[in-house]
Write a protein that binds this DNA or RNA. Structure first.
Lengths: 254, 254
DNA sequence: GAGTCCATTTCGTAC
DNA sequence: GTACGAAGTGGACTC
């Protein structure tokens, strides 16, 4: 682990430091006054101001102002960093192809430039994801409803893989869509696509709602949305389609 | 504009610098070896390693490794930063409420700590957004189809606001959904919701497909998806619903 | 505050 | 590489 750092460098000095850092594969942090322009999937321009530029050895570039979680400008990993002194400014440019994109940062002043060779853990252990919710349901199917039997996860269909496929106490097929947090109407649409695909595949009535043409009490394929909660509009759409909502968190309440 | 910077500070020195920086409302960049833990909407742990910690005066906190565009851990704007020395380590903690979330970074070593008072332009001019696509269509409606007349943007419906509402050459209502880039099946679902809502509102046949029960050639409300391109599955769903796709970019080709 | 939807979404994974 | 869906999505805007 090594850190190099220069305070108020000349553009020439900053250029040397940058090129060395690129060479070493360092993570770079640069404070300075700059303009930024981007051209690629969209196009943008940013006038002069003080910002933090972060350059990563994997090609990622981030321009941060003093506000917001999102960088005001950036370039994705896989880009190539180049630095040069042009027209009295330090120009740092990150480019990539497919899609063709380019980010250009022009520093009128570099106030602080640091670079660190980075080692060590990159792997995060995360809890509370949709996968945790699936695990929870597979271990305790009765949380969905008494008699529920999961049969398959990521079951393929013409509409894509459904989160959990199973049957209820009556043997009726159930498509379960999992969401780790409160959901809106889009999730119902997603569930509807899977149910529809399965109904077509099984050659059963694809009428929405709780009754089919034969007068049975339930549609031949049920849809269940498992999520902590749903919005009003989502609840309406669930009712329209004859689907059920089961309120469940990815991790048990404390 | 002022930059303060310390190299290999003791935890005590780093603590002073951090507290001064918080006081001044500076943007902070810190290189060091640390562990990170998060608890809130989910929960996560990250073992020891070299990282870059960015602390913003608006409360945002970002932990970056040497890879990826996304921070490996973060805290949203509106959080509060606190620093302390605990158990021989420098502990930086960002917390917020609603939802309750907390990010804790524990440095065994701080290698470089810089802080800059930030001023200047924060406003980005961006081109190529969905709004640009809408503008383009409103100025040249024939790009959608000859005879198309836009009547309203963001027209309300029970399914939410539709991007553009208008009529075709025959006076048939058209719902236009705009996407700035290639789309999958979800966009078709979105369009379908709006068309469905409008059909209900107008009290017309809500049968999917190109023919209605009276034997007319077109449904009483048409759906048009304007996007640079669509995936195969999206195209299928468009055909199922009897909707049209118009290939159009948010900005004219060069 | 909640709901809804866009985003240069990013990111992972399967095909 | 493309497609599809999850994400601690973030962020803007409306109600």
């Amino acid at each position: 682990m090594t850190v190099t750092s220069v305070h108020d460098p000349s553009h020439r000095e900053a250029l040397w430091e940058l090129e060395d850092a690129f060479e070493r594969g360092d993570l770079v942090s640069a404070f300075g006054t700059c303009t930024v322009s981007y051209e690629g999937r969209a196009a943008s321009d940013l006038g002069p101001g003080d910002r933090l530029l972060v350059l990563k050895p994997d090609g990622a570039a981030l321009v941060h102002t003093d506000e917001g979680r999102k960088p005001v400008n950036w370039q994705p990993p896989g880009s190539e960093h180049h630095a040069a002194v042009r027209e009295g400014r330090l120009r740092v440019r990150s480019t990539r192809s497919n899609p063709d994109e380019s980010l250009t940062v022009r520093f009128s002043d570099v106030h602080q430039l640091s670079a660190m060779s980075v080692t060590g853990g990159r792997d995060l252990t995360l809890h509370g994801s949709e996968e945790d919710l699936r695990t929870r349901i597979l271990e305790r199917p009765e949380l969905v409803e008494p008699g529920f039997e999961p049969r398959e996860t990521e079951r393929p269909s013409s509409a894509g893989p459904m989160d959990v496929f199973g049957v209820d106490a009556d043997g009726t097929p159930i498509v379960v869509e999992l969401k780790r947090r409160r959901v809106g109407p889009d999730a119902v649409g997603q569930l509807a696509r899977y149910v529809r695909a399965l109904r077509e595949e099984l050659g059963v009535d694809d009428t929405a709602g709780g009754d089919d043409a034969d007068g049975d009490d339930a549609p031949a394929v049920r849809g269940v949305l498992v999520a902590p909660s749903v919005t009003d509009r989502a609840a309406e759409r669930l009712a329209d389609r004859g689907f059920d909502h089961v309120a469940l968190d990815p991790t048990p309440e404390e």
